[in-house]
Structure formats: structure tokens, C-alpha cells
Nucleic acid binder design. Structure first.
Lengths: 239, 239, 239, 239
DNA sequence: TATGAATGAGCTTTCATTCAT
DNA sequence: CATGAATGAAAGCTCATTCAT
């Protein structure tokens, strides 16, 4: 414990011969204590990225929020970008997991569809960080997600589930026959996402606060109307 | 040598966040030559903000792109934030101006509605910078738009125009009666905006490129179906 | 001059869409004041790189030594590597310039050769920073120099000059005929360079300080012997 | 939580530079398994120091390369500097050991000298890491070697061996009489070392790749010419 | 003998903005 | 109207080293 003088002749990684970065294998610690810190960092990052976007997020704030050293952030995740991807993957996994509980294969088709619409709106509503995360990723042209194998695997079964619901409804005569599951899901999402994501600009241009409890209920009702109205079997061709 | 406190941590963030000064109305009267440079800066800024967001945009790149000196940027616009607001205002003015040409008060209601839907999709499609701009402003919680008197004035007549169209259609028996103009407009926008804004994440999770010519046409047709399907007069209550 | 709070929503260059670095055109200021600071930085960098190598050099030390802000270093030279290259180029230009004054085309061939040998040793002796610079560049596998067009242009005339001297001597019967100018120059250099560059390790293993005035003179005399001994016309083949 | 002063600015630098502690002799006695790991670390370090220099080398990379934990590196060698010294010592021991096999005391003097020249060139040629190691140590002003008792012991017998060879040759009338063994050895080394150590800068300034098989052979022949040319008994004084 | 987790200092580079001319 | 020079603060990331087990 004596006073010690260190030379520590550091020299940043730029200069020497090009050598592969020592990637920590995406940082997989085994100890339980480590796992806990890793998760805290992930959660803090999620909040920070949501609040400020990828570029605006500060690694130091993330570390502080997680009660960790900045260095540890790089110990578990190798870079800010990798951390962002981890956050994204977790976010997608969470929502898709929650959707499984909807049991769309059960119950009356119209009622199941209402569950889906309500859930989707509700999820965006109570997870604004998910919206900001996606917007960030899109600003960056999907740069991170395109490296992720995990994420796309989550969605095939999800679309199939919606497809089965649409078929059930069509067979029961309550849904029209020509509906594409992906298009429908994008519509259900978009109807809520846009309202919530653009809450500030919409509130500004329409000069009213769109986020009051009442107006949000109105919005959900409207979305419900749009989706189910659209799904009604057609009497005659429209478009 | 004035005392200066810098936070330099950008982004909306912390609640008592000190707002950047938006010294509006400092619009210097400029000669014709100056006016031209001013516009070049505005255009360069538009592109840069669109590409990189507010935080990611670099004043130096904007100046370089405009063939100007960074100092000039500060001469015409007093700060990066003011410049961003100017860009935003111009973007809103442009789209609302274009919408006037739709003449929604004329022609068959359903056809007029189709024009609106088609235009809205087309505008987002061919002005991706508008989308990025709005996303940025929303990430920053509408901080800039909040100060703008100009923008909200643009939208009252616009909603009225849609309202008149809905009434015409309802009276003609081709539209349902319970439609709120703002909700409808938000829906029309959202159906296209979400698809285009989230093109990268959606393409990644659904493992297909959503931006091919064909898929975009499919999307527009779907939106058309949704909007007009929803507007069909109801036989029975749905929700 | 009031207290001012700035948000300055900075966001480092990493995140956004890949855009070309705004290279300042290798930084060419026109003002005289700027040119002066630029030179001071170059000189400070030369000393620092010499002392510590490329990797060990600290930009902050360079800036401080030059009486400048670190930021200015990046204003004039765009990166540490570019600065290193500038230093290298200047170093080569300086030695080659000095060599021109040797007037090898004049005087007796043996005497001219002695001038060259003496100069080369003397230059390395009194410019140890040149040695360290070259060693650094070689440690980095010539990464910087290979981007330089300027440097190689300096050397063609130099080799020609030596070639002419060798011919003169051969014709006069005092030099052997089979000498390659480049090989000879590398030998003249190496005989001095190695002694001076490796002064510490050689002193350590031979347990004597090789850098005393006397020993340095002895070394120069030895080199002279080796070079001129080698150049003596052959009576019979040797190798 | 001891008070700790870190300079962290590496490199030889400032004169009163606090020397890194070189706690020698802490050589832990280790079992056979441990000895093996120790050697693997030493070899990995040798490669890493050679590739990147002392400052550019990364302990983590060394450990990874050795298939060991960073902590183990500190267990066997107490610091990066100590490790570097160990590598240096091993390198010197290796080359001096190899030289013993030259049997310079046997055979015709000129032929023995040719063996020495050929060996020296060949060793540098096939051990580029030795060159980089020495350059690093010299950049650091021989800081490590200074402490080593082992190394200097290796060289006295080596110089004596060369001295005997020179005497043999002089007595036989094939070598001149005034040759200093150390100077000659430094010359033989320098003629090859400089060419190989500065391969990148020389290739750049002379615009040709000096490391082709053919050019290397040419260089060796040239060195041979220089050394034996110089050693030829003089007819008249030269310098 | 071995390992994962942790640390604090320091590195290069970048940024929005302003001064002096 | 226009420009080059200058600045302080901070950002992301990396380093050698040690603690706890």
C-alpha cells in the first residue's frame, strides 16, 4: 500500500500494427454477481438511449445510473453500438414475449383482434422507450439490427399467429378475405405508434395536448374503429 | 472572457433542463446576395438534419455543403437550434402549401379522399427528410416547435378542409357520420409514416426489403383499403 | 457577456450515417500568424515524436510545447497520424536539402566520398530525433510514408548524385567498378545509424559508454576506413 | 486504497522520469505445469513486443495469445516492464548461443569471417522480432537492460572470439592489422540491421521493395564485399 | 495455481461557438 | 458581408494493474 509511481507507458490502440480488437466474446460472464451488473447496465442503457437517442446517450450517464464504472460497460459490452444492439434485442424480445400471452388462437376472432389492437396501443403507450429506440435505429438505417440474427427469428411465428387469426375470422364470415398479415400488423402498429411517437409535433400543430387520459382513450377507440371497420367483409369493391 | 456555464450534454434529458436560447426575430434584413446564401444554408441544413438528426448534424458540414463559412451560419441563424427551427418551419409550410392544391372541396368525396391518401403517402415517400426532421423534434420533445407561432396557424384551415370533405361524404351517404377530422388525418398519416419511417427495422424483422417499388405500391393500396374501408357507412356498431 | 447556459447537444461523430470526415485540405492557412503557429506545432511534434515514438507521443504535450490549444493541432493537421507524416516529410526534406550542399560533383572523388561519409555520420549524430522518427515509422511498417508522394521524389536525384561520384572515382582509378549507389548509401548510413540508434543496448552489452566524444571519433574513423577500404580497386576477386 | 500517483504518460521522456520498478529476482519457483505456462507467456510477449513495441504491446493480447489470464502474467512476471526485460534477456541469450556454433576459431580466417557475416545477416533476417525488440529498448534509453547483469556477461567471450579470429587472419596476412573487434562487429551488424530494420522507409524512399528474395541476396553479397574488402591488408594508408 | 470482476487515470478526437480582422 | 484562427469542455474508449475468491 505504499505510494507508488507508475509509468504505465500507455499508448492508444491506434498506432501499432493492425491487430484484431480483443472482443470479449460479447462479454459473457459466468458469475452471478457479474450477471447482475450486466443487467443493471442494460437497463440503464435502455433508459438513456430512450431518453436521448443513440447519439445523444452518454456512456458515463449509463454507467452512473447502473452504479458502475464506465470501464465495466466496455467489459460486458464491447462498445456503445454493441450495447445499443443488446438493448434493442431485449426490447423486441420483451414485446414479442408479451404478445404470446394474447392467445390470439382462442376466443371469438373479432374479440381476439380487439385484444391485439388494445395490446399494441397499450404497449407503445406504456413503453415510450421502445418507440424512441426504434426511431434511433431507423435514423441509423438499421445498422445494428441488421447484424442481429436473433431478432428476425422472433417475428416469423408472430406473423403466422396473426395469419391464423385472419383465416379464422374470414372463415367465420366476420373478416374480409384479402388481408395480408404483415400489412395489417404494420397498420395496427402505425395507427398507434405515429400518434405516440409524434405526440409533441402533433400537439404543437393542432394546438392541443394529445396526451391527456381522455384523448388517449379517444384515440384507442378510433384505432379500434379503423381496424375493425376495415376488416368488415366487403359488400362491394371499394378502392 | 465572460463566465460561461456549459452543460454540453445535449438532448432533452433532465427535467429542469436549461433551454437553449432561441432568439427569434433576430432575422437580419439582408440584401439579395445575402438572401441567396441564407437559402443555401437552409437547404444544406435540411439535408444534414435529415440525415443525422439534430444531435448528429454538424454545423461545419452544413456550412461546407452550403459553400459558406461556419461563421455565416451563425450570422444568419443565431444558433444550431434556431437553424433547426427554421428548417422545421419551412418543412411544414411546404407540405401544407402542397396540400392546398388538392382541392378537397371539389369532386366526388371518395375520389377526393383517395387524392388525400395518395398525396400523403407520396409526400412522405418522396420527402424522407421530413420524417427524420419530425422524429428529431419529437425526440427533443417538441422543444423548438413550441416556440413557433407560425406553424400552428397553418393547420387550422387544413383540418377544416378535411372536416368539410367528411361532411360532404356523410351527406352523400358514402362516409360514416362519426369521423373526427384530426383522428382521421392522424390515421392517414400514421399508416404511411410508420411504414416509411421504420423501413429499416421493419425490413430487418420481417426479413424482406420493404422499399422495393412493388411493395410500396402494395402498401399504398393497403392504406387506401384501410381508410376507405373504415369510412364505409356502418350497418351495425362495431367496437 | 452575461452568464449563459448552453446545451450544445453535442453528439460524437461515431453514431450517425457515415459521412466523409471534413478534412481541412491538409490545413492550409493563409494568414501569417497561422503559419507561425503551424510551424511551432510541427517543431514541438518533431521533438515529442522523437522522444517517445509515435505511440508514446502525447498530443497534449505537443500542443503545450507549441504554446497552443490541442484543438489547433487538429485544426492544422487533421490527426495525430497526419501530423506524424508531416514531421517525417519535413525531416527527410531537411536532410536531403543539407546533402545538396555537399557538392559531391566537385573535388577529388575520394575527398568527396569522405565528405559524404562525414556528413552522414554527423547528421545522424546531431539529429537523434531523425533516427527515432525513422524507427517509429518502421515499427509501423511504413504506413505513413507510403501515402507520401513528396518523399520519394527527393531521393532519385540523390542516388544519381552518388552514382556520378562513383563513376568519377572509377574512371580515376581510385574506386572499384562494381558498386551500386543505393547499396553503398545504405551501407554508409547503416554503419553510423546502427551505432547511434542502438547506443543504449550496445553500451549495455559491451559495458562501456559508446557516446563519449572520443569513442564517437573512433567510430567515425572506423566507418571511414570501412567505406574507403571497401571502395579500393580490387586486385583479385574476394567474395 | 493506497495513495497512488500515476504518470501514465509512458515513454522515456522527462529526465527525472520515475523509473518503473523492476522487482527482479522475484522469480517464483514453479512446478512443471507452471513452467510451461510461463514459457508460453514469454513467447507470446516476444511476438507482441516485436509487433507493436513496448508501448504498443497490450498485456491482454499477450495473455490471450498465451492462452492465459492477464492475472497470470502478473503472477509470473511482476509487471509489463519486467516481462519486457525477460523477453530481451532471452533474445540475447538465444543469438549468442547460436553464435557459439560458428566455431570461428576453426577453419580458414576468411572463410570463418564469411560464416560470421552470413550468420549475422541471416539471424536478423529470420528474427525480425529481435530487431524490433532492440529498437524498443533503445527508444526507452536502455532502461531495462541497464538492470540486467546477465546480458553483459554474454558478450565478453563473444568479442574475444572475434578478436582471436582477427589475429589469426592478420598473422596469416589476409586481414589488415588495425581492426578493433567491437567496431568490426558493430559494422557487420549495422550493415545488415539497418537494411532490415529500415526496410519500410528505405523501400518507400527508393521506390522499390527491398525485401524480395533476390534483393536480399544482393544485399548479403554487398555486405560480404564491404567487410572483406575492408579487411584486405592495406597497401597504403587511406583515411 | 488460477480466474472473473473491477478501477481510475488518461488518451485521441470532436463539438458548437466566438474573437479579431 | 465575410473569413481564418481560436477555445474549453466533454465524449468514447483503452490501459496496466489489482481485488476477491
Amino acid at each position: 500500500m505504499a505510494t507508488r509511481i507508475q509509468l504505465g507507458n500507455g499508448q492508444p490502440a491506434r498506432s501499432p500494427a493492425p491487430r484484431p480488437r480483443l472482443r470479449r466474446g460479447a462479454g459473457r460472464p459466468t458469475g452471478a454477481a457479474g450477471e447482475q451488473l450486466r443487467r443493471r447496465i442494460l437497463e440503464a442503457a435502455s433508459a438513456e438511449f430512450a431518453r436521448s437517442g443513440l447519439g445523444g446517450a452518454r456512456v458515463e450517464r449509463i454507467a452512473a445510473q447502473a452504479g458502475a464504472n464506465v470501464r465495466m460497460l466496455y467489459y460486458y459490452f464491447s462498445s456503445k453500438d454493441d450495447l445499443f444492439l443488446a438493448v434493442l434485442e431485449r426490447a423486441y424480445a420483451t414485446i414479442r414475449e408479451a404478445e404470446k400471452a394474447l392467445a390470439l388462437d382462442k376466443g371469438e376472432p373479432q374479440e381476439a383482434m380487439r385484444r391485439l389492437v388494445r395490446f399494441t396501443w397499450g404497449y407503445y403507450f406504456s413503453h415510450p422507450e421502445f418507440i424512441t429506440l426504434l426511431n434511433s435505429e431507423n435514423l441509423h438505417q438499421g445498422r445494428h439490427l441488421e447484424r442481429s440474427a436473433r431478432v428476425s427469428q422472433l417475428h416469423a411465428p408472430f406473423l403466422e399467429m396473426i395469419g391464423r387469426l385472419l383465416e379464422r375470422g374470414a372463415r367465420a364470415g366476420v373478416f374480409r378475405h384479402d388481408v395480408d398479415p404483415m400489412q395489417l400488423y404494420i397498420s395496427i402498429s402505425g395507427l398507434g405508434y405515429f400518434y405516440l411517437s409524434n405526440r409533441y409535433t402533433l400537439s404543437a400543430i393542432f394546438k392541443r395536448n394529445l396526451m391527456t387520459r381522455e384523448r388517449c382513450d379517444v384515440r384507442l377507440a378510433h384505432i379500434m374503429d379503423v381496424v375493425l371497420g376495415y376488416l368488415r367483409p366487403q359488400r362491394s369493391s371499394l378502392s
